[in-house]
Amino acid sequence: MVQFRLPREARPVTGREHAAPERAARPRRFVVYRFDPDTGGPPRLDTFVLDLDDCGPMVLDALLKIKNEMDATLSFRRSCREGICGSCAMNINGRNTLACTRRIDAYPGEIRVLPLPHRPVIRDLITDLSQFYRQYAVVEPWLQERTPPPPDRERLQRPADRARLVGLEECILCACCSTSCPSYWWNEARFLGPAALLAAYRWIEDSRDEATAQRLDALDDAYRLYRCHTIMNCTEACPKGLDPARAIAGVKRLLALRKL
């Protein structure tokens, strides 16, 4: 059976409390998941109280402040701090999102920061996403052509055809969607997950791509595609406002039409 509960050694315990600085004008509690692979203990939930008057506006700013001023061992990924690299994806107050584009004042009280769900944790907020990337590779996310390219120019696309890719090609591979999907939690070994399927649909919809039939063949599988039951956690989670659920429905529709 699928394991719905966390294994015992993975259940977080209450950790350290780092108090607010003296005379904090606007104190705010941040509860942060900590896991150190080098010590034997279970994961911890550490509390850090920050003064929001002395902190940048985004959740990522708070994490950086903790790392710089309170606990240098706190580990997390970030790079662009403007929602384009996809590194800082994590679970904030129960929803997957990017820490760098989430305003602290969008949350009323305590802010709980956990790693992306149902992933092996490497350290603190850093999870192992290699499976996620392999699944992306399975859908062969590149232009595939059979006819030779024109000798004197690129493969052109009409504006109307290009417009079909809007909402599909902006994915930053942050994994917020896939790791929010219960079907992905239970079937991550064989279900490709919303991000990879969105990418598959992006190439199926591309007017220049000539491997549409093979792409559809590769998705006609009870596990790869049809573990998706349109729960739509993915769409709710996507920080770029994309709609993987709709893209997956598009793939299913194309497969059904082809069959009929």
């Binding site: 392999r134 490709l192 599988d221 009870a222 049809y226 082809r258 069959k259 009929l260």
Partner: peptide, 19 residues
């Protein structure tokens, strides 16, 4: 590296089930 089961050959019967 170790395979993801996702790279097993697709089953090809799944549309009929869905339909």
């Amino acid at each position: 590296g170790e395979d993801v089961g996702a790279r097993l050959a697709p089953s090809r019967a799944a549309v009929s089930h869905w339909l």
